[in-house]
Structures are given as structure tokens and as C-alpha cells.
């Protein structure tokens, strides 16, 4: 078995009386999709925020390629290759879809501290950005103001930005949410291939997608991982059924 790229160990995070992460241990291995499921408010998004450095954990460790990244800020972690998409799209609304992707491309390809040359005239940057828009099927909407994109298109744009970062790990927080059946199916196909580029930690409520995609599933309830295993193991686990899947699959 290959060793993990991302290792979360004994991670704890408290919001007042609420344990949002309660000694969470989980890892992500090359080539896999590791789904993280659990009821609303279980602490899935909070876990992703701690991994990317938006929130600081109270205890535990986070390792990336064997190296502790706990003390790095969010920007440094992004630069190392952690790309996340947000549960609620987080984009720059007043600029075009293309410019949102350019922002990511220019951050990866050299510096943002260039003051004279127009970004849009930089053929290499624009070509790279268009490639990523094409991959998610947004190429025809490249010049549309982001605020004028539909909900589904904004989700696609988030994905294009994550791709543009050429990350070593994808952390996707409910990418299917609000995509509609067709969108979900397309995205499922897309993610199935994406795992070969970089492993994916996939937070998702859409169980069809999870069961179709996941190599492993972890179940988070009240901040605790109550089970980790293959799709069949999780499906057949009594504990998981009573805590979560029972209601989901009913």
C-alpha cells in the first residue's frame, strides 16, 4: 500500500461547548477518492477548513507528504498544492469567469507582482486559463461576469480554478450541491478521472455519487469519525446505518 499524501491525526477543534472535530484521524492516499460523509453540522466543512488552514485546530497534527503543515498559513498550504472548492461558491463576482481562473494561473505560474503587462495579453496565461475552463465545459462563458453566472456555472468555475492550481490534493466540499441530476452525473464522470491527477477528499451528501466514486468512505458524526472503510463495508455497517445512512437511504 502506498503511503498517504495527506494525514490528519487526532485533530480536535472546539467551538465553545461544541466539539466540531473530536480526535479526527483520516488520510488520503495517491490515486484515491476518499469520501467524507455525515449529517448536517457533523463538522465536515470545519475539517476541510482546518486542513487548508482557514481555521486553526486546537490539537492534533496535519501532515502533507510527511511534513507537518500545522503552522503554515492558508496561502502557504495552497502554494504547496492543497486546492479546495467551497461549499458556498467563493469567487470574485465583478470580474469575468476567465479572470477568476487567470488569478489562479498567474499565482501558480510566477508572481502576481507584475505591474505593467496586461494579463489578458499574456497568451500563455490566457491559454492555460481557457484550457481549464474548457475542461469543466465553461469555455463559452469565459467573458461573462462571474456574478451573472448561474449557480451551477459558478460551481464549475470553482472546479476550473482548483484545476488551474495544478494541486497535489483536491479538497472538494459538496461539489454536487445544487447541480441538478445532469450536472451531478457529468461531474461524477469527471471526478472519476480526476483522481488520477491528484487524490480527492470528497465531502458530499449525494450518496449515488459517493457510492459510485469513493475508494474509501469515512463517516463523521458529531465531530467523530465513527467508521472508515470501503463502500460495501460502510453500506453494511449497522453503526453507520443507525447514525446516518438509515435516514439518508430511507
Amino acid at each position: 500500500m502506498s503511503s498517504a499524501i495527506l494525514e490528519v491525526e487526532d485533530l480536535s477543534k472546539r467551538f465553545g461547548a461544541l466539539m466540531a472535530s473530536d480526535h479526527v484521524t483520516l488520510d488520503l492516499r495517491p490515486g484515491e477518492i476518499h469520501a467524507l460523509i455525515g449529517p448536517n453540522g457533523a463538522g465536515k466543512s470545519t475539517l476541510i477548513k482546518q486542513i487548508v488552514g482557514e481555521l486553526h485546530h486546537d490539537a492534533g497534527t496535519i501532515r502533507f507528504n510527511g511534513r507537518r503543515i500545522d503552522d503554515l498559513d492558508a496561502e502557504a498550504r495552497a502554494k504547496m498544492g492543497l486546492a479546495r472548492t467551497f461549499q458556498v461558491s467563493s469567487l470574485a463576482p465583478e470580474i469575468s469567469a476567465l479572470h477568476n481562473v487567470l488569478l489562479a494561473v498567474q499565482a501558480v505560474e510566477g508572481s502576481v507582482f507584475r505591474f505593467f503587462k496586461p494579463v489578458i495579453r499574456d497568451k500563455k496565461l490566457v491559454a492555460a486559463a481557457m484550457d481549464n475552463l474548457m475542461r469543466v465545459g465553461l469555455q463559452d462563458r469565459a467573458m461573462v461576469r462571474t456574478a451573472d453566472l448561474s449557480h451551477g456555472e459558478r460551481r464549475q468555475l470553482e472546479m476550473a480554478i482548483a484545476l488551474a492550481l495544478k494541486p497535489k490534493v483536491f479538497l472538494l466540499d459538496e461539489p454536487m450541491a445544487g447541480m441538478g441530476p445532469d450536472g451531478s452525473q457529468q461531474l461524477t464522470k469527471f471526478l472519476a478521472r480526476l483522481r488520477d491527477e491528484a487524490p480527492i477528499l470528497l465531502v458530499e451528501h449525494d450518496m449515488d455519487a459517493v457510492f459510485a466514486l469513493a475508494d474509501r468512505i469515512s463517516v463523521l458524526v458529531y465531530g467523530q469519525i465513527i467508521a472508515t472503510g470501503s463502500v460495501d463495508e460502510i453500506r453494511n455497517s449497522k453503526k453507520v446505518r443507525s447514525a446516518y445512512l438509515g435516514e439518508e437511504l430511507a
Partner: peptide, 8 residues
């Protein structure tokens, strides 16, 4: 936040 998440 958009900028942060692309590493800037």
C-alpha cells in the same frame, strides 16, 4: 478568501 485559496 478567493486570493488566499490560490495561495496569494
Amino acid at each position: 478568501q478567493r486570493l488566499t485559496s490560490v495561495g496569494v
